[in-house]
Design a protein around this nucleic acid. Sequence first.
DNA 1: CGCAGTATTGAAATTTCTCAAGCCGAGTGG
DNA 2: CCACTCGGCTTGAGAAATTTCAATACTGCG
Lengths: 247, 247
Amino acid sequence: MEESAPFMSHRQASARLLAAASRHGTLDAIDKGRLREMRSRGRKLAAGEDVVRQGDRPIAAVLVVRGMLARYHTLPSGDRQYLAYHISGDMPDVQSLFLVVMDHSVCAMGQAEIDQFPLEPLRELCRQQPSISFAFWRSTLVDAAIFRQSISNNSARTHVARLAHFFCEQFHRARDAGLVQTSSCSLPISQFQLGQTLGMSLVSVNRALQVLRRGKMIEFRGGRLDVLDWSTLRSTADFDPMYLHIA
Amino acid sequence: MEESAPFMSHRQASARLLAAASRHGTLDAIDKGRLREMRSRGRKLAAGEDVVRQGDRPIAAVLVVRGMLARYHTLPSGDRQYLAYHISGDMPDVQSLFLVVMDHSVCAMGQAEIDQFPLEPLRELCRQQPSISFAFWRSTLVDAAIFRQSISNNSARTHVARLAHFFCEQFHRARDAGLVQTSSCSLPISQFQLGQTLGMSLVSVNRALQVLRRGKMIEFRGGRLDVLDWSTLRSTADFDPMYLHIA
DNA sequence: CGCAGTATTGAAATTTCTCAAGCCGAGTGG
DNA sequence: CCACTCGGCTTGAGAAATTTCAATACTGCG
């Protein structure tokens, strides 16, 4: 499943890296030039394939090119707890720059494509170009804000609100990344996995889903989310996108 | 309640800042010198007092000197969801360096004492001294790892394991910070607040607590945690401190 | 001493999970 | 082209966990 990408894609890959960093800070010409020098290896992922595992000591950072990646804990029972989802333009494990051992795994939710950038050159780049460092740093801080929201979501909201909030977040982020057409976005997650994300059983997910459907707020099937009534969905969820710290 | 600290304490405060940074990276003489130049304002906090609130745009970063601080979300219902606790030597809101608006609040759990370091000089310092930047960055990454663990804890563990895990984490971190004497540490949190931390009702907290007590694993009263049987507590909790990324 | 906040207990009400069966839809091989 | 199969979705109903309500202790502090 792993394969080197052709040479041309190196330029595309570093352009994508530049875009990822630019989302979180202002870069000058030097910063941009240095980012464009970064070399990477492209890789296609099969559905469900792991990119890194809990306990690994990764040597490269991942940038999502296409598809969706997820971070998850493997519990002693063997069960998973999904922690976050990442779409095109996201870097799910920038933290590896400074946390040597992975405390969670990263996998592809459906077919996906990534770039892998060796960590050492990235670290060196961050050392030399503070603005780049700050941009990546900020991206990890937004990740943390999203984790905080998940704590509240999974701990303090009703099942229906919890699901609604999850959909709001995914949809909002997809839209921000330019991945929404006609109020629908890709969300290749099964109801069972939704349960492992939100701390609910499969049956509870299914029933909460039906409430949202009957309320004509969303449609969710075949790995795709359609938002039919954003305003109602949003208020059902208590969704306030402030925590995403976008612009 | 706010008051300037005497001049002498400035030197102590910057030494504490140096210590906080040193926990997360190797600093050279220049780094250390620059850190020692940082000026701060000491502040005493009453029990329950807020340091920053959701929506604020803080201008200073907090370093805990004494006591315990907590981060929390305020939900639309008015209810709180506690997200993390911080003890001496921790910096609960380094993220404010790059996330302008607070997405959560920070309060004192009991009486506490903090140093406040203006953000702008800190940012400038990070820009000039990459090692310092990396150390603070890393501290925010460990925070994020702890948030991830909280997602799993609150979503996928039984009430008893959840509580046990929380105690393991607090105790382990207190020990690492040198705040444990004779297997007990300060933990000024009421059972109700424990519920708002772990996503359980007050009654459930109380009953889970009794299980741990009857199992002779812990004693918890008057804001103090005694660990009577670490090994059993740890296995009850499935606690693996790896995620704390302590050297 | 007594108040106020915190902890404990019991029991009913509710939510959530588990179990188990049936359904649906896409892909496969006859 | 259709039956078959597999994974994922849906449904019902009983079991179990959890919350809520409400009353009773406890404790530290003024």
